[in-house]
Design a protein around this nucleic acid. Structure first.
Lengths: 221, 221
DNA sequence: GGCGTTCTTGACGGGATCTTGACGTGCGAG
DNA sequence: CTCGCACGTCAAGATCCCGTCAAGAACGCC
């Protein structure tokens, strides 16, 4: 079940979105202000966020900015303002799409499907030595499933989501442990070592999980 | 350089898109009809496609459908039709975004950036001897990744960010080491030499990392 | 309540990296 | 021609960072 967080303070719009989305098979979470929205993202990890720009406490921009410091969840911004300035700002802050009110439910649903389609990261990553199945949340080494602890899995998923790219130490800690652990580089050392022991054919000479001294780590298939 | 394929039959719009995109640092490929567009995608592998729906031979929908059978390149659809039917169809066929004419260039550029960000198209600088991938934070010499220390990488990134431009010694020290190191021109000598040893085919006779005596350094691709 | 797994934390050694200074070289000015 | 300046080169010490290990704490499951 795909779970969508609707962030909207006007009750009427919120209700109609909720009903429309539910009718098309989505699970709907609700937040009426920015603080609740951010909290909901940390606790419930929705698959997609519909974010209204006009909120009572924080602006939608601020919610988006805070969200993007640690999360890559797809965000579709809803706004009554047609000006291009808002669009540019929202998109550059990391929004995936921008829809101006009033909008048709069928168009919104199409954009939700488009965002969801993009978000599913190629599901399976295959190397010579193991297979990472993002959807099933498991790793096969020589065809045999390997037991990974929750943190090990999350760390691997974050690294594998950007194959070939350097992922900074701060980014990793932020996404796996949370915003409060940005200095704990110890964790990375320990858990990267764990992953290597379980995945690499030669843990002492890593082929897939490379370390970039002083910067972070890189997964290369 | 990020390469964008513009598929548009109206000369006026095509020209203005080409000029606008070029001015913002994109490499622009052109196709005036559907067949040419598909051919260009197979041969030139652009990083992103701007697709007009009204084409002389095939419809934009048909181009998109054929493209999606084998390619996952991000596609932004341009259309004069505001009806939601077209939007829904295009998005469900695999378009990443849908923009209705007339549109502002700044909005289009923001959507291009958003699409590129999602697809992780990274800025690359290609020379005869090596490739600098700024997004992945990696340098390839003869196809093989080269180990750069954090400072070496930062220095190269700053120089490569202004290709062909002179970068003053103070600017370099400021951006790489920090405001407190503005007098340490020794560092530049040492680390530019390191970079040359790792990148230049003939470190003694630099082809890419030129020094401007008394002023600073210049990277020329 | 007991047990096993997982997470946290700290210490240690080895290796890579940064810093620092000395020396050589080429060029232009005097 | 000689001098001085700026850059290139090199090497060695200090420092930082990473991999490793192990032990205690926290957690979840029966």
């Amino acid at each position: 079940m795909i779970r969508i967080l609707v962030v909207e303070d006007e009750t009427a719009i919120r209700r109609s979105l909720e009903i429309g989305l539910r009718a098309h098979g989505y699970d709907v979470l609700i937040a009426a202000d920015g603080r609740t929205a951010i909290q909901a993202c940390t606790e419930d990890a929705p698959d997609l966020v519909l974010l209204d720009l006009g909120l009572p406490d924080l602006t939608g921009f601020e919610v988006l900015r805070q969200l993007r410091t640690w999360s890559t969840v797809p965000v579709i911004v809803l706004s009554a303002r047609h000006g291009s300035g808002d669009k540019v700002e929202a998109l550059d802050l990391g929004a995936d799409d921008y829809v101006t009110k009033p909008f048709g439910l069928d168009e919104l649903l199409a954009r939700v499907r488009a965002a969801g389609r993009r978000a599913q990261t190629s599901e399976r990553i295959v190397t010579d030595d193991f297979v990472i199945d993002l959807g099933a949340a498991q790793v096969l080494v020589d065809g045999e499933p390997v037991r990974l602890t929750p943190i090990e899995w999350k760390l691997l998923a974050v690294l594998a989501a950007s194959p070939g790219r350097l992922v900074g130490r701060v980014d990793l800690l932020h996404q796996v442990w949370g915003p409060a652990y940005e200095g704990e580089t110890n964790y990375l050392r320990v858990y990267v070592a764990n992953l290597r022991r379980k995945l690499e054919p030669e843990p002492a000479r890593p082929r897939y999980l490379h370390t970039e001294p002083g910067l972070g780590y890189r997964f290369t298939p």
